[in-house]
């Protein structure tokens, strides 16, 4: 099984300057793990510590943006072509606000995680207060 992967200029330091590399995997996540075994560090530039596709890159399978194909769970077939491009974005406003405006899923996930964390802290604090009494 072989999948052609097109690498943008900014990530070619991980591929020895190569513009196109080959990899294998049933899903995008598998493919990135496979690529990382030969091009160490590449995956960390594409996937966040939380395990989501990074906001700063666009990844396409053939002609589709993987964000519409299940992101890292996007299914891959032999002969598929994967293209990675740097997302082009920016603007006058701060990053947090920009992320909120763009309504990116990652931002929504981060906010819900933050809320869950805040709820945990609040219940923990309530527990401590109860214990103190």
């Amino acid at each position: 099984m072989s999948i052609e992967v097109r690498i943008p200029t900014i990530l070619r330091s991980y591929t020895g300057g190569a513009k196109v590399v080959e990899g294998a995997g049933d899903t995008l996540a598998d493919l990135l793990t496979d690529l990382d075994s030969r091009h160490a560090g590449l995956k960390a530039r594409l996937v966040t510590e939380a395990g989501a596709l990074h906001r700063f890159v666009n990844v396409y399978v053939n002609d589709e943006d993987v964000r519409f194909l299940g992101a890292l769970d996007a299914k891959l077939n032999d002969g598929d072509s994967v293209t990675i491009l740097p997302a082009v974005a920016g603007g006058a406003f701060g990053f947090a606000a920009a992320a909120a405006i763009s309504q990116h899923r990652a931002a929504a996930a981060a906010i819900s995680q933050h809320r869950a964390a805040a709820a945990t802290v609040a219940s923990h604090a309530a527990g401590l207060r109860a214990a103190a009494r």
Binding site: N58, D63, A89, G91, A92, F93, A98, I101, S102
Partner: peptide, 23 residues
Amino acid sequence: PMENAARSMTFYEFDSMEQLRVW
């Protein structure tokens, strides 16, 4: 000229499909 997919006064973002085509 590219479309600002964010259509915002404070943020811009290339439309990912337009970007793929142009690149």
